[in-house]
Design a protein around this nucleic acid. Sequence first.
DNA 1: TAGGCCATCTGGTCCT
DNA 2: AGGACCAGATGGCCTA
Length: 139
Amino acid sequence: MDNFLNCHYGDDSWERNIINSISLPTNVEAAPTAKQRCQANARERDRTQNSVNMAFNALRLLIPTEPPDRKLSKIEILRLAGSYITHLDNQLYTGEMEQPCLQKNNLSCKNTSLCTFCWSTVKKEKLTTPPHSSYEKQY
DNA sequence: TAGGCCATCTGGTCCT
DNA sequence: AGGACCAGATGGCCTA
C-alpha cells in the first residue's frame, strides 16, 4: 500500500511522518494533517476491533455448532445467525423441536434443507451455497 | 500456488 | 468541525 503517512499505531510516529512525508498534497487547505489522519486511523482501528469484532464475537457465542468452539468466519457467522433465527422462529410457531435436518434425514443436509447444526459437516464437503438457502425462502 | 479471510488504511458521506 | 460509519483497496497469513 502506498501509505505516504505510514503511521504506526501505539507510538508517536505520526510526528516523524510529518517530517518525513515528502509527498503530501500541495493543496493542503482541505487535506487532513498527518496527525488527523493517524487519529482517524486509530479511531477506525478501535471501532473495528472493539465494536465490530466484539459484536461478531458476541453473535458467535449464540450460534450452536459442533464442536461448540468451531472457528467461523464472519460471513459464516452472519449466515448461520440468520438460519438459526429462522429455525427458532419456526420452532416458536410450529412447536417443532427437532432440528430441520433431522426431521427428514441427514442426507437432506447435503441438498437443500441445511441448518446451523450440520453446517460444519457440510463445509467439509466444499459446499458453496449458504446454509438454509431454501429454508429461508419459506418466510 | 490460488483463493479465502482478515486487518488496516483511506477518502467520502452523514450526523451531532 | 470533528467524529462515526461505510466501502474500496491493499497486503499478509493460512489452507487445500
